[in-house]
């Protein structure tokens, strides 16, 4: 089984089409919507976790791109600004996916972007605004 969290961006041309429905029907993928903002006739962003065989997932991605949608992994949209981070750890109790954690050896706050689901709880919990999320 393959599973990945992706950010799918719609444009005015395709935001009204039931593309996610077609995607899961045609390519036999499970989906879990983590976040969405749809502005009819203008644009839309949807953060979704897709699960299925790797082959189906890859075909699904090609299908989305053919439909004119932009697809990227969530991890590309969330980052820890390590110049700003003071490694206090105020964020870690808020991270529901444990992608932010305190390394017991170095006592640094580390960020595993692959685990992140883009909830943004960390953004405001951080006193120095070191977490940067650019989904919406």
């Amino acid at each position: 089984m393959y599973s990945k969290k992706v950010v799918i961006r719609y444009t005015a041309d395709n935001v009204d089409q039931p593309i996610i429905c077609q995607l899961v029907k045609k390519h036999d993928l499970d989906f879990n919507i983590l976040k969405a903002q749809i502005l009819p006739r203008r644009e839309g962003v949807i953060v979704v976790e897709l699960t299925g065989s790797k082959e189906n997932f890859d075909r699904g991605m090609r299908f989305l791109k053919e439909k004119g949608l932009q697809v990227e992994p969530v991890s590309k949209n969330v980052s820890q600004n390590t110049d700003k981070c003071v490694h206090c750890g105020a964020c870690i109790a808020f991270c529901p996916t444990d992608s932010l954690y305190l390394d017991k050896q170095s006592m640094k706050v580390l960020f595993d972007a692959e685990k992140c689901n883009g909830c943004e709880f960390c953004v405001m919990a951080c006193p120095v605004r070191a977490m940067e999320v650019n989904i919406f």
Binding site: C88, F94, V109
Partner: peptide, 13 residues
């Protein structure tokens, strides 16, 4: 209960 520090142990060290 999950704990979260406000002080940076890393920087203190």
């Amino acid at each position: 209960v999950v704990t979260a520090p406000l002080s940076s142990y890393y920087k203190a060290r």
